[in-house]
Design a binder for these strands. Structure first.
Length: 904
RNA sequence: GUCGCUGUGGCGAAAUGGCAGACGCAUUGGACUUAAAAUCCAAGGACCCGUGAUAGGGUCGUGUGGGUUCGACUCCCACCAGCGACACCA
């Protein structure tokens, strides 16, 4: 036992922690402690492949942070769970013909085993999975809260639907009309929308799940078809989701990503009257456009409506109707990808109609073009080709007039001439020209003036738009939360269009047993195949059919951080008192891939729950940190093709050669992939080097937020450090577990004290800043220093063990035990750096002449500037360099350096 | 195309206005050993001058070019490269 053997001590301490419930977290923070700390990991999706090395990176970081703060006396909530609904489990189920619940449970068991193997200090009693019936019962409950909430724009918050004012004329039309009026304002509502239908996956997808016209998962083609779907009105919260980013301690990068996704823009809506060519008005028809540049209204030389625009057909002239018809039809078949991809040549057709520019009163042609989106703004634009690059391209292609109305503030005469002549598009801000009353105004002032004039004449108004769209919330899959919604049936068994919520007391709505949940390529959900006993419900004398869509995977992860607070609470989704005590999450660590979707969705749900009085804070995640991706080395041949790692041979000089062709290969860094055979399995690393070595290496590789390549030699390096730490304290030659002979019951020397206390100070600082790589470097220096000492004070060894505790907990517990302690060190007080012990008598001060270090002079600490200069001048080399030179000035940073500036 | 991040020894990195390269890997030398492994100790940016060899000294050096400063890896401007996100949002 005298040698450091992680295979022995790691399982031993893991079962000690488990048996003693060392990391059990109390229901409420200890009132006598130093406050609460809620540290959360983004919970994993339990895939069949098990953990990869990316998981333990964030998990180790939070674990170190938690173990540290426990030792500092905080009550720490640090839970773990599983995001287990979703497509991969269902795909796997279909492939292997096992029920998804069965494979999901097996995967969860495997993940739990692997996570426990790494010694994380989770309170496992709080473990949950989004697929637990007891969990998704409350996911359904929250959905019903969304269903029961409308957004009151005056109060700027969500309120119960019962408090919504109903117009008299609606009330007059009877209860059915009132019900459907209410339904239109709910935060969870149904809508016939063009959706992203993916036949291969057999489900619709949210806009965010479609990448370049293909499904994010599986890369299958996606079509746009109209379908009745559940939507969540996240757009109502766009402004607050944007504004409240200011409250958060997140990186500016992530905040910007979210802000860009919300995409707020300000401008104006302008109404253009429509006429036919000869100037006769076409009834009272007008088209409303949205623009961020109302100041360029005088430069609008044509108008474009989206192919989906409701007025397209009404305004199209008889001559143009055939081409317009065809164009719109073609556009409807195109996916978003087809509309944006390729050479990006814009296309469009003239409708034959004209619109009157409200400023110039001149008619401008109205075109249909698919570069204008139907679902943003008003679905129509005024085109100002002189000052918008897209309009400019379109105008060039179809030979439409280009009229400059803004002059840049700076530019060479040549550039200005090119803009004037229409050879170049100027999209920036400048000074208004050719716009009568606007002449000479800055872009900002001109915008304000135009809006003011539009509002006066009633032809327009200031307006705000968001890129954010409502969240498409239903999926046609089996493995998700069923919607707690019932559709009322007529006598003939068909729905009559009325819906109602499943009473909250009837929750949960469990998934039915299905023999066959394969997708069939049609948009009817698999739950439609459930037994009549599940599908049909009688309530209050009426017959209903259950909603058969299921919720998307995001649903469960929108609120899991709340359930962790009181996972067993049976009468509410979270215990009120405990929620108030633990929220918000103080530190949330996870991958940057969730920067937009998960974090935005969860913030939205949280705000609704906050408005409805169920949670105390406006935001769920106070501090967010994104761990960097872990990459692996890969090899490239002369053509740039990647070569699988098992085909590569490295010689002693580290040159990589192709095993078969002998070609010299270039080493690069790439994502781990099965195809390249460069995936690192954490379980194998644990078997070979130990969990503590894995943890330590993941932290030592570099800064937490950086992307960094994996190196097995690096793992060996930190393992070597753990061995050295072990031998520093333990007698590795003895058969018995006993302390190294050098460990003595003595006081540290002054020099040893400096090492001890500067290490404590540095490690403490580094942990609080999440700079774990440098913290480990400081402990290595400590071990290097004391390895050379033949008398090692026992107190110093205890300090090292405590510092090591958060990083390599198994090793530290074993050493702590060897040093004679009976209890775990999990709650032992963290060492304190003592200021006086850090003091040194003298320091080496670099002496510069003209900014170059020419000498180092030892000086007493706390020396004044005069004495510093005197001692520096006394140095032979310095005086030599200063002789016969004219001194310009002397710069002194006390205790740091001195610089003589001389004329050369 | 737009935005963001990154660029420092053979490699992972440290230093965020004050001694560039802490710490680790790999490498080299030494001690221990019959030998090897393990362990322990030590060396190391490049080039030049100097010496018998040491010691010592100089010039250059943090992607490139400019700037600010007594002093720049660090701040500012422009550019290049790699990675990532978004991508007709008017």
């Amino acid at each position: 036992m005298p040698r450091y053997n992680p295979a022995d001590i790691e399982p031993k301490w893991q079962s000690y922690w488990e048996q003693n419930k060392t990391f059990r977290c109390p229901e409420l923070p200890d009132p006598n402690g130093k406050g609460k700390l809620y540290v959360l990991d983004m919970f994993p999706y339990p895939s069949g492949a098990g953990l990869h090395v990316g998981h333990p990176e964030g998990y180790t970081a939070t674990d170190i942070y938690c173990r540290y703060w426990r030792m500092q006396g905080k009550t720490v909530l640090h839970p773990m769970g599983y995001d287990a609904f979703g497509l991969p489990a269902e795909e796997y189920a279909i492939r292997t013909n096992t029920p998804p619940r069965q494979s999901t449970e097996a995967n969860i068991a495997n993940f739990t085993r692997q996570l426990k193997m790494l010694g994380f200090s989770y309170d496992w009693d709080r473990c949950l999975a989004t697929t637990d019936v007891d969990y998704f019962r409350w996911t359904q409950w929250i959905f019903l809260i969304l269903f029961d909430t409308w957004y009151d724009p005056k109060a700027r918050k969500g309120r119960p639907i019962s408090e919504m004012p109903i117009p008299e004329d609606v009330i007059a039309k009877g209860p059915e009309q009132v019900a459907s009026y209410k339904d239109r304002f709910r935060l969870a509502y149904q809508d016939d929308a063009l959706v992203n239908w993916c036949p291969a996956l057999g489900t619709v997808l949210a806009n965010e799940e479609v990448i370049d016209g293909k499904s994010e998962r599986g890369d299958h083609p996606v079509q746009r078809i109209p379908l009745r779907q559940w939507m969540l009105r996240i757009t109502a919260y766009a402004d607050r989701l944007l504004a409240d980013l200011d409250l958060l301690d997140w990186s500016t990068g992530i905040k910007k990503l979210q802000a860009d996704w919300i995409g707020k823009s300000t401008g104006a809506e302008v109404d253009f009257k429509v006429s036919c060519k000869n100037g006769t008005a076409l009834g009272e028809e007008s088209i409303r456009v949205y623009t961020t540049r109302p100041d360029t209204l005088y430069g609008a030389t044509y108008m474009v409506v989206a192919p989906e625009h409701p007025l397209v057909h009404r305004i199209t002239s008889a001559e143009q109707s055939k081409v317009v018809e065809e164009y719109c039809k073609a556009a409807s078949f195109k996916s978003d990808r087809d509309r944006t991809e390729g050479d990006k040549q814009k296309s469009g057709v003239f409708t034959g109609a004209y619109a009157i520019n409200p400023m110039t009163q001149k008619p401008i042609p109205v075109w249909v073009a698919d570069y204008v989106l139907g679902n943003y703004g008003t679905g129509a634009i005024m085109a100002v080709p002189a000052h918008d690059i897209r309009d400019y391209e379109f105008a060039l292609k179809y030979d439409l007039p280009i009229v400059q109305v803004v002059e840049p503030i700076q530019g060479t005469p040549q550039e200005l001439e090119e803009i004037r002549s229409g050879k170049v598009c100027f999209a920036g801000e400048g000074i208004a020209i050719a716009g009568r009353e606007l002449n000479g105004l800055s872009t900002k002032d001109a915008k304000a003036k135009v809006i003011e004039s539009l509002e006066r004449t009633g032809l327009g108004r200031g307006a705000v738009n968001y890129k954010l769209r409502d969240w498409l919330f239903s999926r046609q899959r089996f493995w998700g939360e069923p919607f707690p919604i019932l559709h009322e049936l007529r006598e003939d068994g068909q729905p009559n269009g009325q819906i109602r919520a499943v009473p909250m007391s009837h929750l949960p709505v469990d998934l039915p047993h299905l023999e066959d949940y394969k997708p069939h390529g049609r948009p009817e959900p698999p739950l439609g195949k459930a037994d009549a006993s599940w599908l049909y419900v009688e309530l209050d004398g009426k017959r209903y059919r259950r909603e058969t869509n299921t919720m998307p995977q995001w649903a469960g992860s929108c609120w899991y951080y709340l359930r962790f607070i009181s996972p067993k609470c049976s009468d509410a989704f979270v215990d009120r008192q405990q929620e108030a005590a633990w929220m918000p999450v103080d530190l949330y660590i996870g991958g940057a891939e969730h920067a937009v979707l998960h974090l935005l969705y969860a913030r939205f749900w949280h705000k609704v729950l906050h408005d409805r009085g169920y949670v105390t804070h406006p935001e769920p995640f106070q501090k967010l940190v994104n761990q960097g991706m872990i990459l692996s080395y890969a090899f490239k041949d002369h053509r740039g093709a990647l070569v699988s790692v098992d085909l590569v041979e490295e010689d002693q000089d580290g040159n990589a050669k192709h095993r078969q062709t002998g070609e010299t290969l270039q080493r690069i860094v790439a994502k781990m992939s099965k195809a390249l055979k460069n995936v690192v399995d954490p379980e194998i690393v644990v078997k070979e080097y130990g969990a503590d070595a894995l943890r330590l290496y993941e932290m030592f590789m570099g800064p937490l937020e950086a992307t960094k390549p994996w190196s097995m030699q690096g793992v060996n390096g930190v393992r070597n450090f753990l061995d050295r730490a072990w031998r520093l304290i333990v007698d590795s030659k003895s058969e018995q577990m006993q302390l190294n002979d050098s460990v003595k019951e003595v006081e540290p020397t002054a020099e040893q004290d400096r090492v001890i206390h500067s290490t404590i100070a540095a490690v403490t600082q580094d942990i609080e800043n999440l700079s774990f790589n440098t913290a480990i470097a400081r402990m290595m220096e400590f071990v290097n220093h004391f390895t050379k000492e033949t008398i090692r004070p026992r107190s110093a060894m205890e300090t090292l063990t405590l510092l090591l505790g958060p990083f390599a907990p198994h090793l530290a517990e074993e050493l702590w035990h060897a040093l004679g302690h009976k209890e775990s060190l999990a709650y032992a007080p963290w060492p304190k750096a003592i200021e006086e012990k850090l003091r040194v008598a003298s320091v080496e001060i670099p002496v510069q002449v003209n900014g170059k270090v020419r000498a180092k002079v030892s000086m007493p600490v706390g020396i004044d500037d005069q004495a510093t200069e005197r001692l520096a001048r006394e140095n032979d080399r310095v005086s030599e360099l200063l002789v016969a030179k004219e001194l310009v000035k002397v710069v002194i940073v006390p205790g740091k350096m001195i610089n003589f500036v001389v004329k050369p």
